[in-house]
Amino acid sequence: MKNLIALTCLTLLAGCGSAGNWGWYVIDPTTPKGWSNISFLLDGFGATILLSVIAAVFSMVIGLLVALPGMSANRWIRLPSRIYIEFIRAIPLLPMLFWVFYGLPVVLQSMGISVRIDAFWGAVITLALSDSAFTAEIYRSGIQSIARGQTEAAKTIGLTYTQTMRYVILPQAIRRILPPLANQFIYIVKMSAFASVIGMQELTRRANELVVTEYRPLEIYTLLILEYLVLVLVISFFVRWLERKMGADESR
């Protein structure tokens, strides 16, 4: 961690010192122009975070709905869930994003449903679907790690399947599910950069637009990477805190 910071600082300092190659003026906060460029870039944070959070919430809900039938004793109930997971996992994010943004409205139109999918919701749908296959697997491993005896005991005291899940299994599984789920959120944040290609005004899109007008890709993309770094580090710290808290609870 310290080395990384030192290396970053050195690179930046080297750039500032030498003539020519680096031109930090483009994002120099002391000049009006630099400052307006910086605020333009930083304004992307809101969209990136909003997109990631909403996509993550949908992914968590879809993942659970896919995971639960995926653990059924009946293979015909299990099958659709397996197919969904294998299918979704096989599709690269970018083609899926294109399909949802450009293709899905056409499909819906042919079914008589006329909706416009804007860049934000196109990205939310794609990220949520793509991620849900992974969250489903996280749920499955978390729930299956709860001993079968718990389900049996719940059955013998007359609880229904839904009651067993709600009062017995999920409260225990959540401790094992939350940390990997929060980790998965980092993946969503990074993948949200793809939303730039369908025109969503998030961090990456704004960097691209500024590069086009300012012709300083090195400085602007360096700042862009730092923006993601800060975001992911904050989430990382939160995940570690969560893991420690959950670990402490477990041993009680």
Partner: peptide
């Protein structure tokens, strides 16, 4: 099941 109670070797109490 509503007529029959069961006790297991491993207790199977709900730990949470």
């Amino acid at each position: 099941r509503s007529e029959v109670g069961m006790v297991f070797q491993q207790f199977n109490l709900f730990p949470h």
